[in-house]
Design a protein around this nucleic acid. Sequence first.
RNA 1: GGGGAGAUUCCCGAGUGGUCAAAGGGGGCAGACUGUAAAUCUGUUGGCUCAGCCUUCGUAGGUUCGAAUCCUACUCUCCCCA
Length: 411
Amino acid sequence: MNRALQTLQERGFIQQCTDLEGLSALMDKGPVTFYVGCDPTGPSLHIGHMVPFFALRHLHEAGHIAIALIGGGTARIGDPSGKTEMRKMLTYEQIDENSERIRKQLDAFIGFDGKTAFTANNKDWLANLNYIDFLRDIGVHFSVNRMLSFEAYRKRMETGLTFIEFNYQLLQSYDFLQLYDRYGCRLQIGGDDQWGNIVAGIELIRRIRGVETYGLTFPLVTTSDGKKMGKTEKGALFLDPALTSPYEFFQYWRNVTDADVKRFLLMFTFLPVSECETLGSAKDSAINRAKERLAWEVTALIHGKEEADKALQAARALFGKGGATGDADAVPTHRIPAKRIEQGILAIDLFVESGLCPSKSEARRLIQQGGAFVNEEKVTDLERILDSTLVQDGILLLRAGKKRYVRVRVE
RNA sequence: GGGGAGAUUCCCGAGUGGUCAAAGGGGGCAGACUGUAAAUCUGUUGGCUCAGCCUUCGUAGGUUCGAAUCCUACUCUCCCCA
C-alpha cells in the first residue's frame, strides 16, 4: 500500500474507503489533491473536529496537496448528518466571522502556503447559485428514494427534517465537483458521519465528468467508555485558548483513561508509531507518565511548546507535593481587589465568584461534603470567612474536589 | 382539512386535587479506594437572606382553602386519514 495511506492505517485513521487499492495506486503515481470540509457553525474548532486535520497533515507531509474547505455557504443551512436536532440558523455575519477564526486556527495547525496547502470557501460558489440551473445540472442526478435510505436522513425523518437540510447532500456533492473542476481534487476525507455525503459527491463527479474520485473516512473518536471525546464540564474542548485555556486542555489529555492512551497518541500526536505503542502499552505509574507525555505533545501542537510547558509545570506544582503556588501561572486565575479580602469574604461567595461553583447552594454542598479547600486546607465551616492572613504572595489557592483549582490573585 | 396522542426538573421517565422541589434510571458533583486512570461502594443533585422562604411540571387565564394534577384559550410536537 502507498506509504502515506499505510501511515494513516497504522495510526488508526482509516474507517472506510471507497476504493483503497485504486486510491493507493493513484497516490503512488504522484501528489494527489484532496480536501477536508468543515462548517463554521461555531466560533472555534474543538478537538472532535481535528481528526481529519491530523490526517490532512500526515498526507500533506507525504507530499499531497491539501485543501481545507470552509463551509461558509453550507453553514447557512446546516448539515443534518449525525444530528438529531435541527441546527439553529446563524446570521451571515456570524458565519463569516466564524470562518475567519477557524481559518486562522487551521493555519496555525497546518501552515497554509497557498500552493500545497490552502483553504477554499464554498460560499464562493454556493452563495449566488441559480436555483433552476442547479436543479437542471445537479439535482437530476440525485434520487430521493436513495437519499431517504441513508441513516442520517432516516433518523431525522422521525424528529423532523426540513427541505433545506435535505438538500445538504447535493451541496456537499457540488463542493466536491467544484474542487475537482478548479483544483483537480480527487479525494475527500472526513469523519465517518460524512460517508454518505462523500459517496454522493463521488457519484456525481463520475456521472458528470466521467472521472473516478475517492473517499476516505475516519472513525468517530469516542473515549473507551463510549462517550464522545473532548467533552468537559464546560462543554467541548475548544482550540481557542479564550474558550478552553491551555491548562484545561492539557488536563483533559492528562486525565484520559488508560485504555485510550495508545489510540490518542497515534491519532493526536506525530510521535513515531513505535513510540506510541511503547508508551501506550505501559502500566501503572508508567502509563501515568505516558499520559503526561500525551498531554504535553497535544498541547504543544495546538497551543505551542511554551504553553505546553507552562501547563505541565502548573499541573506538576498542583498535583505534585500539593499547595504550590509558585510555578502555577497557567492555572485559571480569578482576580479580586485587596480591599475585599481585608474586610473578610465568605468562603462560599469566593467559590462561586471564582467559577468553581455555579451557585451558593452548590458551594454549601461542596463544603458539607468535604470537597472545598483553601490553600489545601479543608473548609469545614459553612460560615467560614477568608481574610488576608491566608494570602501568600498575593495568592489564595482554591480547590473544589480533587482536580479543580483556581488561584485567586489579590490586587 | 379531519381524527387521535402528547408537552414534567440537565436527559429519559413516573406522577392525575393536598403526604410534590416532584419516584426511578442516566448523567453531573462530592467522599472512600487509587496512579490527576478505570471499576466499585457511599452521599448528593432548583435557588436563596437555609430548621424558613421563593421559583419550577409547554404559555396565558380560571375553578378551589389548596393544582404538575380539574376547566378554558393558545403555542408546539408526534401518529393516523385526506
